[in-house]
């Protein structure tokens, strides 16, 4: 799909979201809720004695599962799968740079994911929740986060070029 057309459609999805719910899209918050639910079921004593989980219970009386972002991310899985089927792109595959072994790629993905997960909690949102949705409502915090994400990406790109380039 033409990237500008895709962007326009994504913008309409975002606008509809803001119109209906008063808030933008998100992704990393769903990961947080899943973690909280898992910790609460595996180690209930730890959860009930830690301030972070207590605060979460107070601000989310409905519990971690009955949450906008959880349902939205489940929708993302369906939507992306449907689009992949249409474009014949579905299939198990490990995508990586040309000079990288499978192990290195998996390790890199786990480390990158961990950094992104950590950063998204510290920065109150990821590329969708802070940067994209923040830009739509001209949020200072969201736009700062966006500039930090892409600024750091460009600043570090040279050091990690062997992961991606020939």
């Amino acid at each position: 799909m033409n990237p500008y057309l895709a962007g326009f459609l994504l913008g309409l999805v975002l606008l509809l979201t803001i119109y209906v719910t008063g808030r933008g899209l998100g992704a990393s918050g769903a990961f947080k809720n899943v973690i909280i639910a898992v910790v609460k079921s595996i180690a209930p004593e730890h959860a009930s004695s830690t301030a972070f989980y207590q605060d979460f219970d107070q601000t989310n009386p409905e519990g971690p599962w009955k949450n906008f972002l959880i349902f939205e991310v489940v929708g993302v899985i369906f939507g992306a799968f449907f689009s992949g089927v249409l474009g014949n792109r579905v299939g198990l595959k490990l995508e990586k740079g040309p000079r990288v072994t499978n192990t290195l790629r998996v390790v890199g993905a786990i480390i990158g994911g961990a950094l992104f997960g950590f950063g998204s909690q510290l920065g109150r949102g990821c590329t969708s929740g802070a940067a994209l949705s923040g830009m739509a409502v001209l949020s200072l915090g969201g736009i700062l986060t966006m500039m930090a994400i892409f600024g750091a990406g460009y600043a570090l790109a040279w050091f990690f070029r062997k992961l991606w380039l020939k």
Binding site: G112, F116, F118, G119, L122, A152, L156, A157, W164
Partner: peptide, 20 residues
């Protein structure tokens, strides 16, 4: 926002994705 964003940027270039 700045520190979290910078960590996310590092995660982006090392891991190749963002959460969504």
């Amino acid at each position: 926002a700045l520190v979290g964003g910078a960590i996310m940027g590092a995660g982006f270039i090392i891991g190749g994705f963002c959460p969504g």
